[in-house]
Computed example of a mutant assay.
Amino acid sequence: MNGTEEIGCCGAYCGTCREYLKTCKGCKPGYLDGSRDQSRAKCRMKKCCLTRGHITCGDCGEYESCETIQSFLSHPGYKYGKYRQALEFIRAHGHAAFLNAAKHWTNAYGRYPEQDP
């Protein structure tokens, strides 16, 4: 998947997490290769995203009208705004550009490069 397994369905970047693949299995590892049972996943976003074959919820044609992701992104708090920003960046510029920006982050979200219009 070219590093995209480190992008959460919600837009979080798991690649900077110290617990990723230790105590936190993330959204995708195991589900992508079938070693984890997707029907047992508790996260509705993850189930929907992976079942539809998307990398993130932002890849879905129903993103803007999806009650599940929009409800999640509407939670109060800074991180939810950053997850929305990540998904919007991915929608506009693609996964490779997101991963390029994220390689400099120290958190699940960070700054984006200035993009030409």
Rank of each mutant, 00 (worst) to 15 (best):
M1T: 11
G3E: 09
G3Y: 11
T4S: 08
E5F: 03
E6F: 10
C9T: 12
G11L: 01
Y13L: 06
Y13W: 14
C14H: 11
C14W: 12
C14E: 09
G15R: 14
T16Q: 14
T16E: 12
E19W: 11
E19C: 08
L21A: 08
P29H: 13
G30M: 01
G30C: 06
Y31C: 12
R36C: 06
R36H: 11
R36G: 04
Q38Y: 03
R40T: 15
K42Q: 09
C43D: 14
R44T: 03
C48H: 01
C49R: 04
L50R: 10
H54I: 02
H54Y: 15
H54Q: 07
C57T: 14
C57H: 10
C60K: 12
E62P: 06
E62D: 13
C66K: 03
Q70K: 13
Q70F: 05
S71R: 10
S71H: 11
F72K: 01
L73C: 04
S74E: 15
P76V: 05
K79A: 15
G81E: 06
R84Q: 07
L87T: 02
L87A: 04
F89K: 03
I90S: 06
H93L: 02
H95K: 04
L99T: 02
L99Q: 06
A101M: 07
K103P: 01
N107F: 13
G110V: 08
Y112G: 07
E114Q: 05
